[in-house]
Structures are given as structure tokens and as C-alpha cells.
Design a binder for these strands. Structure first.
Length: 168
DNA sequence: AAGACGATCCTG
DNA sequence: AGGATCGTCTTT
């Protein structure tokens, strides 16, 4: 089980590191399901014009300003997406979960996890709804531009901050 | 109070 | 290419 210290690194380091980790979800009936993370994206601070917290510290992204290890659940169209808050308090960053094994895409992953907005800000720990476990899997990966951020600056759109685990 | 838009997905 | 569909933010 990965504890609070794990989430204190920055989102760029953690986005690739989370590939292959198990995302564990305990549902209301107590059943725990585990999903391997296959795709992520990093959102890195106020300077990142693609980040929800860019010049907007009081809106829905306010949880990104807290110390890493919390769930930032937010709605996009009809789907709830999961971003895992990372880094130190006061620096808004996080890792968007864009794919789980068998559930490609952030919306599909969120739907499978049964994400609800009431999980906003909950800790990534067995005390909360979800947590991460490391079972030793260390996949190779490829890097890509982030998706769906047409509103961001040209240089931020060009950053290769999306990470996909290689097929094995 | 009303409108615009989105870190998406599905269908045709 | 376009519709679904709702929370959040912006504008009246």
C-alpha cells in the first residue's frame, strides 16, 4: 500500500510512476476491486495553462492546492474523472487517471470506478474510497501530448505530459 | 436567471 | 460530424 509520502513528489514524476500501480476501490458493500493503471497525464501548477488551477485557486480545483494524496473528482460532460492530487501544500498539481486495464479513457475509467462528486477531496487511503498499491509491476511507457486541452497555450499543448504503459 | 463550455464517449 | 447532459463559471 502506498502511503501519504508517496504523493509528495511532483506530478511529472508520479504520472509515469503510477503506470502499473493498482488502483484499489472499495465500494459501499465493502467489496474491493483492483485495476492496473495504464494511462496518465500530469497537470503541473499555476504556470501550466492546461491545469484547472491555473489562475483559479478558489474554484472546483481548490483541492489541488492541498498536500498530495487526495482525490480530485470532477465532472467533464456526462462523466466523472479522477485526478490524484500530488506535491506539497500550496502547489496545485495532480495526475489524471486516463486509463485502467480494460477501461481505456478517463470517462470509462471513472464510470467503472463509480466515481461520485461526493468523493471530492477524500484521501487516497483505505480509510477513504480508493488507494494505490505497488505490486512490483514496472511497465515501459511512451509519452504523448495531453488530450482535450485546446484552451491551453501553444507551448503547454505541446508538452509530452501524457504517459501510456507499453503493451506486454 | 440565463447562457456557454468542458482534462468525454457513443453513434452514424 | 453531432448529440448527450450537468456542474461550474461568467455574464446579465
Amino acid at each position: 500500500m502506498l502511503g501519504a509520502e508517496y504523493y509528495s513528489s511532483d506530478a511529472l514524476v508520479l504520472a509515469s510512476d503510477m503506470l502499473g500501480k493498482m488502483l484499489c476501490r472499495r465500494s459501499a458493500d465493502g467489496v474491493v476491486r483492483r485495476y492496473r493503471i495504464t494511462e496518465t497525464e500530469a497537470y503541473l501548477g499555476e504556470e501550466d495553462t492546461a491545469c484547472h488551477a491555473h489562475r483559479c485557486p478558489t474554484g472546483r480545483a481548490r483541492v489541488m492546492y492541498r498536500a498530495g494524496g487526495l482525490a480530485y473528482v470532477h465532472r467533464c460532460h456526462m462523466y466523472n474523472l479522477l485526478t490524484i492530487v500530488t506535491g506539497p501544500e500550496g502547489h496545485p498539481e495532480g495526475v489524471l487517471v486516463r486509463g485502467l486495464e480494460g477501461f481505456d479513457g478517463p470517462g470509462r475509467a471513472g464510470r467503472e470506478l463509480g466515481l461520485e462528486l461526493s468523493m471530492y477531496g477524500s484521501p487516497m487511503s483505505p480509510e477513504g474510497f480508493m488507494w494505490l498499491e505497488d505490486d512490483g509491476c514496472r511497465p515501459g511507457f511512451t509519452v504523448h501530448p495531453r488530450v482535450g486541452i485546446g484552451y491551453a497555450s501553444e507551448e503547454d499543448r505541446a508538452r509530452l505530459w501524457r504517459f501510456r504503459a507499453s503493451e506486454q
